[in-house]
Design a protein around this nucleic acid. Structure first.
Lengths: 263, 263
DNA sequence: CGTGTGATTGAAATGCTTCAATTATCGTGG
DNA sequence: CCACGATAATTGAAGCATTTCAATCACACG
């Protein structure tokens, strides 16, 4: 199945290839020790994982790592940068399902094919591992295998958290939840300046939060008016106090329609 | 952490214990061959899985199998019936995350505790397996292990599907999606009469679809007016043609606000 | 045969989307 | 380095969708 036509033109940044977009190289044992799956695996496991991995460098944002419907041959693990995982509904509307950060795995096949698309949202480095070889490796590495199971179970929990947010929060609350999440990540949140740099446009954010980009902009305005944030530029916000954001999230979804009783 | 207070009183059916709610028994190799994880495992694996499993029978709907925050010692697999997986947000509102049907696994721990609650939504039979023993078993059964990984990855996809539905469909469409899903299950859909029996109340359904129970009732009314369903009783609907339901789902989320141009 | 719970429907208000127009921002080429 | 153009972001206005409070109806159970 090919990807359905796009209904929102500006949703996908038009890639302008100039420099080579992607550069593959062998793993360099000395230098590649960033925030990859290292956290999840023991030293020995790491070595064996890397032995079957290739490192890919994507220079720019908006590059397709893998596409919905393609035959799935590889699993990927983020070393650095942000990857947007999305899926198109039958009606052609895009939903951003998750954002993959260093240490995250993506590209699990379903029936031999990818069910989601993965697009870089910044310059990105990845490990790419042939699924078949990983499969063989896992059969002989029960501990690594268990770690992978736990990892996927964790992703499942994250997805369930998204379900909760989409199921019960209004847009300002969803945005606040998103900002809180990312403020936990030193790559994006400058603790000294209290500024958060956003890896997504308003369009992407809309597709992530399940709303229109205009609505997201209004949610930013609302949070700013409430004193929870200050917009420095569209992609950079100051968060004076995360507590205020948390307070927004814990508030009611709707103002409440208490019929005023005559006194 | 204890579960927060409930804001919607009628959301949780009050359990009225009369008969023993739950009955545990040893696995009976002859009779227990329903729709359990059998589908997922080979014969030999099944035997070894059952060797460490206990069968639990819950007689009635509304019984707690496990509760959010409890120490997690067991994994469960549904043999028959429906189990509601839910989580409470900090504001005390319940979200139904998923419905577990025969063959599904639930009860994965996170940091040694359950993060969700599981409540029976009908009479239910389960396998209960000590997590530690399963862990040991998996270390010696790579194939079973891989199957379990695939199973959890599948659940992740399902959760992502829910994200898509919550992110881009209106309530009538979400309800239609739900009805389509369950009409695929012979346990609920009588193909001859074209009737679907629902395992959930309007409250549960509201918490599943992310809306108020009144809104769900209105969505039923809307689908009925559109000719997609016929309400026989609150828990039993006739679905003349699933195609009509699919058509509802593929329609626009919103009527569209095309400003009328003077002719 | 009442009583309580779930389901439905009504009415008002809020929230969100859509279309439209304007403003800001960023990358690019001059 | 600056100006330009394209795209992103914001804001306004109108209308649809959903929630909330309320009231009524239906049904199962004691």
């Amino acid at each position: 199945m090919t990807r359905p036509a796009m209904t929102r033109l500006s949703a996908k940044p038009k890639p302008r290839i100039r420099l080579p977009e992607i550069r593959a190289r062998a793993f360099d044992r000395e230098k590649d020790s960033g925030g990859g799956i290292e956290n999840l695996l023991s030293r020995g496991q790491q070595a064996r994982f890397r032995a079957i991995a290739t490192v890919l460098d994507y220079q720019r944002s908006g590059s397709a790592v893998l596409t919905e419907g393609e035959d799935a041959h590889f699993i990927y693990s983020v070393i650095s940068g942000v990857v947007r995982i999305s899926r198109y509904s039958d009606s052609g509307r895009r939903q951003v399902l998750a954002l993959m950060l260093p240490g995250d795995l993506f590209g699990f096949p379903q029936g031999g094919r990818y069910v989601n698309s993965a697009i870089t949202a910044s310059p990105v480095s990845l490990y790419r591992v042939p699924w078949q070889r990983l499969r063989e490796l896992l059969l002989h590495e029960p501990e690594m295998h268990l770690n992978m199971l736990i990892r996927v179970a964790f992703d499942l929990r994250e997805a369930q958290r998204r379900i909760m947010i989409l199921g019960q929060q209004n847009i300002a609350q969803r945005l606040a939840s998103f900002l809180i999440d990312f403020s936990q990540h030193p790559d994006f949140y400058d603790e000294r300046k209290r500024t958060l740099s956003l890896p997504l446009t308003r369009f992407d954010l809309g597709d992530y939060l399940g709303s229109a980009p205009e609505t997201v902009a209004r949610a930013f305005a609302k949070l700013e008016k409430a004193g929870a944030i200050r917009r420095i530029s569209p992609r950079l916000v100051e968060i004076p106090s995360i507590e205020v954001l948390r307070h927004v999230v814990s508030g009611r979804r709707r103002a409440g329609n208490r019929r005023r009783q005559d006194s």
